[in-house]
């Protein structure tokens, strides 16, 4: 990067970046898309769209920076701008309402869940996945980015265009909700808590 006063990547450079830095993340991208849309065809479209955009705007990608985070940001924006509007599923929670909730004292409250480690580990079916899917999209997203994809808080802040403080509070809230869901699954399934 340093030795080049960049006028742009050559076609060959673009293709190399695309092949070696973008495409390897396709599983993660598809999984993210699927957990946003819950539809296979929509997920395919969303991923394809993201890659087409990524290639088209490849000049704004700086080599050596985190390609995965860059791609996730494009996918998330495509989802919000193109997809969510068309989606039949209305956004269940008003964003403002959610933010207000985060900023309330609720956040500091300790959720004393009756979940036990053994119970969690015994959940061999789709309980975790279903519990995750049952969360509202903003909560689902932070858990996917953090726990599944291993993004750091500052990367998540960039992907989601929110302050780090919001990332942290949203994550905290999301985890509490997830535990509530898991706990009720556990009860239904008759685990001794």
């Amino acid at each position: 990067m340093s030795d080049k006063s960049r006028k742009g990547y050559t076609k060959k450079e673009k293709d190399t970046i695309f092949e070696s830095e973008f495409l390897p993340h396709i599983d993660s991208m598809y999984n993210f898309a699927y957990r946003l849309t819950f539809d296979e065809d929509d997920s395919k479209d969303l991923v394809q769209d993201t890659y087409l955009k990524a290639y088209r705007f490849i000049e704004s990608f700086e080599q050596g920076t985190n390609a995965k985070a860059w791609l996730f940001r494009i996918l998330k924006n495509s989802f919000i701008n193109d997809f969510r509007k068309k989606s039949k599923e209305p956004s269940k929670v008003d964003y403002q309402e959610v933010e207000t909730f985060y900023n309330s004292d609720e956040i500091d409250k300790t959720i004393t869940t009756d979940l036990r480690v053994e119970t969690v580990q015994e959940m061999i079916g789709d309980e975790i996945s279903n519990a995750l899917n049952s969360l509202d999209v903003d909560f689902r997203t932070v858990i996917i980015l953090c726990d599944l994809e291993g993004f750091k808080y500052d990367e998540m802040a960039k992907i989601l265009d929110i302050p780090i403080g919001t990332v942290r509070s949203r994550l905290h809230r999301a985890r509490n909700l997830l535990k509530e869901r898991l706990s009720s699954y556990a009860k239904k399934m008759g685990y001794k808590n």
């Binding site: 991208m29 999984n31 957990r35 296979e40 480690v117 975790i128 995750l132």
Partner: peptide
């Protein structure tokens, strides 16, 4: 920790 680990192990999906 257990939940985080389970999410990592159980919630992935391969591209079609």
């Amino acid at each position: 920790m257990a939940i985080k680990k389970m999410i990592k192990e159980r919630c992935g999906k391969n591209v079609p």
